[in-house]
């Protein structure tokens, strides 16, 4: 009795304190809630752009995605969370990897314009089936489509390399070393984007949202063991709060309302089953786009087997 009275008093005081001092602080978080608001607006604009827009961004993502996951598996097999924090670091390293084929232009800066020429003919080849006569027009259209950061870096690099060209032959040798560092830096800057640099307010297309949702579902569904034949199983909902690491592994997960669920063995068992699905090492990592880490770092997974239990 006493303890419950103390709790009751504490709660009342807490409510009063929140009313007096806490309200201004509570008003601030809604700013963060704007994040989903932004996401909701996007689909309206994105509906028409769905097919074309998402394609180009995926290519750079893949490069970033495919490579970073490699480091995490090794530590994961042994122990879960400990060795992972340095994970964001490997990205720039990985991002630097692509340049190796390009060192060739360094000794011969003149060769660089050539790749440009190569890039153009490729798009030309595709539009052929439509109308060979409009080849000239097709070129400018294709140029904007591959807004590769890498290509833009090459452009900038060209400009900079053109400047030193008029100088004497001796100098270019020394300068040739400088561009090396610039070249690497530029590529590293343009291709490596740390997840922490992601702006949550950045608009995400509808297809990107769907892709993330689908990846999470596809990861969870094969791991979540449900019990067919249980009474009203389709009405039981379990909510799991999950925190993910940048490499897609679970760093923390908890079942919400666990204390309340303890009074209902069936709901508790269902919740724990969902939690086991989240914690199952065989069901990690989530292969999610690293550059959207800020979006999927914190997950709220709501488990309800209504689709599996049709009744």
């Amino acid at each position: 009795m006493r303890s419950s009275i103390f709790v009751s008093i504490f709660l009342h005081v807490a409510v009063i304190v929140v009313g007096i001092y806490g309200l201004p602080a509570i008003r601030k978080p809604p700013v963060l809630q704007d994040i989903p608001m932004v996401v909701e607006i996007v689909p309206i604009a994105a509906i028409t752009n769905l097919s074309s827009a998402p394609e180009p961004p995926k290519e750079p993502e893949k490069k970033a995605e495919v490579k970073p996951p490699k480091p995490p598996p090794a530590p994961k097999v042994k122990k879960a969370p400990a060795p992972t924090p340095p994970l964001p670091a490997p990205k720039p390293e990985v991002a630097v990897v692509p340049p190796p084929p390009e060192p060739k232009p360094e000794p011969k800066p003149k060769a660089k314009p050539k790749p440009k020429v190569k890039v153009k003919p490729k798009p030309e080849a595709k539009p052929k089936p439509k109308a060979p006569a409009s080849l000239a027009k097709a070129k400018p259209r294709r140029k904007p489509k591959p807004p590769d950061r890498f290509a833009s870096v090459l452009k900038n690099l060209e400009r900079e390399l053109k400047r030193p060209a008029p100088k004497k032959k001796e100098k270019p040798k020394k300068q040739a070393k400088k561009p090396k560092t610039r070249f690497e830096d530029m590529i590293a800057k343009s291709l490596s984007r740390r997840p922490t640099e992601y702006d949550p307010n950045e608009k995400m297309s509808l297809s990107e949202q769907h892709a993330i949702h689908n990846i999470i579902r596809q990861t969870m569904e094969p791991c979540w063991i449900i019990r067919a034949g249980s009474k009203n199983a389709q009405n039981i909902t379990s909510v799991i709060k999950v925190t993910l690491r940048p490499d897609g592994y679970v760093s923390g997960a908890r079942l919400t309302n666990k204390s309340r669920l303890k009074s209902d063995p069936f709901s508790l068992a269902a919740g724990e089953s969902a939690l086991r699905a989240v914690l199952n090492p065989s069901c990690q990592p989530y292969k999610l786009p690293v550059d959207k880490y800020a979006v999927w770092k914190y997950l709220t997974l709501t488990f309800n087997p209504r689709e599996s239990l049709g009744r």
Binding site: F10, A25, Q33, P36, H213, I225, R227, L299, T300, F303
Partner: peptide, 27 residues
């Protein structure tokens, strides 16, 4: 409960991605 309340008041909110899992496996 007390700590939870304190955390609720003090802790900053962060964006969460809500996903519904509506299918599982019967095994």
């Amino acid at each position: 409960v007390a700590i939870g309340l304190a955390v609720m008041i003090v802790a900053p909110a962060h964006a969460e991605l809500n996903v519904d899992i509506t299918r599982g496996v019967v095994k």
